[in-house]
Design a protein around this nucleic acid. Sequence first.
RNA 1: GCCGCUGUGGUGAAAUCGGCAGACACAGAGGACUUAAAAUCCUCCGAUCAUUGCGAUCGUACCGGUUCAAGUCCGGUCAGCGGCACCA
Length: 802
Amino acid sequence: MNNYDFKAVEAKWQQFWDEDETFRASNDHTKKKFYGLVEFPYPSGHGMHVGHIKAYSGLEVVSRKRRLQGYNVLFPTGFDAYGLPTENSAIKFGVHPRQITDENIEKFTGQLKRVGFSFDWSRVVDTTDENYYKWTQWIFLKMFENGLVFRDKTLVNYCPSCKVVLSNEDSQGGKCDICHSDIVQKTKEVWYLRITEYADKLLEGLKEVDYLPNIKLQQENWIGKSTGAFVNFTIKENGEQMKIYTTRPDTLYGVTFMVMAPEHPLIDKYRDSIRNIAELDAYKAECAKKSEFERTQLVKDKTGVKIDGFTAVNPVTGKEIPIYISDYVMMGYGTGAIMAVPAHDTRDYEFAKKFGIDIIEVIKGGDISVEAYTGDGEMVNSGELNGIKNKKDAIEKMLKVIGKLGCGEAGVQYKMKDWAFNRQRYWGEPIPIVHCDDCGMVAVPYDELPLRLPPVDDFKPGTDGESPLARIESFVKCKCPKCGKDARRETDTMPQWAGSSWYFLRYCDPHNNEEFASQEELKYWLPVDWYNGGMEHVTRHMIYSRFWHKFLYDLGLVPTSEPYAKRTAQGLILGTDGEKMSKSRGNVVDPNDVVDEFGADVLRLYVLFMGDYEKAAPWSENSVKGCKRFVDRVWALQDKVTEGDDYSDALRSSMHKTIKKVTEDIEAMKFNTAIAAMMSLLNEIYAAGTITKKEFRDFLIILYPFAPHVTEELFQLIGCEGILSHQEWVSFDEALCIDKTIEIVVQINGKLRAKLMIAADAAKDDVLALARADENIVKAVGDKTVVKEIYVPGKLVNIVVK
RNA sequence: GCCGCUGUGGUGAAAUCGGCAGACACAGAGGACUUAAAAUCCUCCGAUCAUUGCGAUCGUACCGGUUCAAGUCCGGUCAGCGGCACCA
């Protein structure tokens, strides 16, 4: 036997699989299917990261196993290639983003193949390919047609460094998700998708899918549904109805003032009758200067200005109360105005204390001279609500009261906002809309898709926040598709998340030129059976793509209401220092280096063996060596093979147990313990000294999904027929997993005192008798009284003594 | 502030339903082979005490509880990570 030449063996099988198209999904729709999906990479110039390898290795193992289990497996990949990093390097090096993208895709493809992933390479999609983005534009137009696209002039999150408008999701924490600069608020007219229309469906749909609980929870929190009531307060001076949203209508009797967001439209409407309008304007200007970040950081000190000229009337008490403006009320949530109940809301309490406003207790239980009481209790000072102790009852009662008064009704609110769907940059899908002076916004006709990105020399964004496309006259100037007059093309492009919102549909039928995918293929392949990816995509990509999918479902264009039946997430790989891998820390591990030194099989094994798949784990060069030893020891088994088409007595039960363990652990994504079980079996084989051909063959099959190269080679070397990729997964016999004799533990008062070997089917009394007779037990019991004896079959005996 | 998760040897970690804590690895120590080293193979490897050997006690962040039995369940505390955050 030679030393294992992993370079030659891995190259040999990668070439074979490539030429043989071993992993191509079949068109045979009579077979049972498995659609495993991993998040397609963004082809950045840095190449792949070991994190990518871990992210793909999970479903790679599942997919390889499913094929052996007789499934028609669709395990595709592709490239989510639009985006700023490519555009920025295009600007930096003066190279067209198309060229950079092509080079990066080639680099990524090579790296993925070097690791031996069993992707179906005939179905690769590239979101920047015109045959792909044609359909991204097509779906956008369908949304436009159905009223889900609108333009609005509002305060937007704007990144001054990237010169783009960002969605709420992309500017979490007041930082730009791309460059981490501080976001500023800017008024701009931009494109939106009406995702809020689907808020309830997105929430409801979570009930029918199998996502990890924390993924569901994060999505629920993001959608942020709350139930409460809308209540109208009349403004005495002008009769205007001031609508507020509250989750606590039960506290309506405790309202002592009201607050509007500084940008509230009623202020502008009645400027002339507000006596201190100059003061309000100054306050508003001051707030606009603060970034969202500052606004939320300076929580402690409440600021605001009383509106001199507005007085609100509490609809249930008829009492007159002042109205303030303050930046602790946001225009973007609810109605942009609130009723303030200082006795039972911490923020209102702080405000009331600072401005010397009355605090009226309506719920007993706290001490409102010290702080706001937000708990439950008996209603007081609340008219017909007095005496009610249960919050739910109080809310119900109040809803009836305001219903009778005709001043309000129950309502729901969502934290989720509409999706700012635009970028003022070059490298994205052009938005297929034409602006006509007479017809307004007009869709580009479907038969003119794709609306291609025009060739450009200068990709720099405009200083005024305009797309570079705005400088291309030949692109901007066009005829209105409706009336034929001169018109202007929209120059914004779609955000990075557009292309990935439907890519899993395209994989079903990637070369279709008539439809985004045929109904027949979609019916067969959908839903995605198992989707794995990073936690960072749970509130963006996942919500966006579920929204697009549900929209297409409502049009009858996809057969399932949910795109993904199951979703899991892998944990990060940290640097050897235990910190998140990043270029600036210099702790990034390049998968290429690992493949060069140890081979692809070792890399694959290690990323799955290093710890719980769903948890973060630091990289360790030394531990990689352990997996290398394992592969080498498997290779060396070829010298220990004896003829035999059965299991030997020595290994029979271990074989069955290991097959069971590996079969089940893969399904539960417990890859680390599956590998550990195979390592244990290998240790047993070494202890036994020999292995039958049948045992070796079956061992290779269960190891194959993890380490396909070395197992294919050994399968061939020991003279098995065909290739391993075409074998059947091995079965196990539950009965043979049970040992004939087992070890049980004997405890005295819960402390281990002896161990016994007994027959697995021994009767309780016999076991207890044996236990009592054991010399250690006799000694330990001594002259104490036996109070109780507990027997757990197969596990232990516990003798309780006094 | 709110919600969620996690806390186990020198290290990464295991441990179905409450039933032998530390599987499997890494690192370390000793030995075999070797002129030597690497590689490989074998042995040891939670702490303390005892030690010729058998063994004893403690030990899963901390404090308490339930139980014959707790890493696992319950109550409280602390620490770390993630998400949301003036959401009315």
